[in-house]
Simulated assay, not measured.
Amino acid sequence: MQLRNKYSKEELIKQLESEDFQRKTFSFYRYVNFDEPNTYRDELFEKWFQLNCKGRIYIAKEGINAQMSIPEHNTDAFFTDLNNRKELANMPIKWAIEDDGKSFFKLIIKVRPKIVADGLDDNTFDTTKVGNHLSPIEFHNEIGKEDTIVIDMRNHYESEVGHFENAICPDVDTFREEIEMVVNDFGEDKDKKFLLYCTGGIRCEKASAYLKHHGFEDVNQLHGGIIAYAQEIKQLGIESKFRGKNFVFDERLGESINNEIISKCHQCGKACDTHTNCANDDCHLLFIQCDECKEHYQGCCTDECTDIIQLPMEERVLLRSKFHDKYSKSQIYRQRIRPKLLKK
Rank of each mutant, 00 (worst) to 15 (best):
F242D: 14
I168L: 02
R176Q: 11
H296G: 01
E178Q: 03
G144L: 08
Y31P: 03
R176T: 02
G225I: 06
G299C: 11
K47Y: 15
T274R: 03
I202H: 07
D273F: 08
S69E: 14
I64N: 08
D20E: 14
K264M: 00
G101R: 14
R176N: 10
K14I: 12
N84W: 10
C272I: 00
L134D: 04
E239S: 07
Q50P: 07
E160L: 01
I143D: 08
L16I: 04
A230G: 09
Q235T: 06
E36C: 07
K294A: 11
Y157D: 11
R176Y: 09
N155G: 09
I233S: 08
L236R: 00
E314Q: 15
I257G: 04
F78T: 01
G237F: 05
E62Y: 01
C53Y: 06
W95L: 10
F26T: 12
Q310H: 12
T148V: 13
P37L: 09
K145R: 14
S208R: 12
E36V: 03
W95R: 10
G225F: 00
D76A: 14
D100K: 15
Q298V: 00
I93F: 11
C198R: 01
F164G: 05
L211H: 07
Q335D: 14
V219F: 13
N166L: 06
K110T: 07
L3I: 11
V32P: 05
D281F: 15
K340T: 08
R320D: 15
V172A: 13
A279S: 13
I143G: 06
K193D: 11
I115S: 06
T174I: 01
D291T: 07
N33T: 08
D76T: 13
R85K: 14
D173V: 00
F139W: 05
S8G: 12
N65P: 12
P113T: 10
E142K: 05
I233P: 06
T306E: 15
G55N: 09
M313R: 14
H324G: 13
E232R: 00
I168K: 03
W95Q: 12
A207D: 01
K14W: 15
L222F: 00
I57Q: 12
H275I: 02
G55M: 10
N52P: 02
R112G: 00
K94L: 13
I257L: 03
F242E: 14
A279I: 02
S69A: 09
F125K: 09
P312E: 15
N155H: 04
H275E: 10
L51M: 04
I70C: 13
F79L: 08
L134C: 03
Q267R: 04
D42L: 14
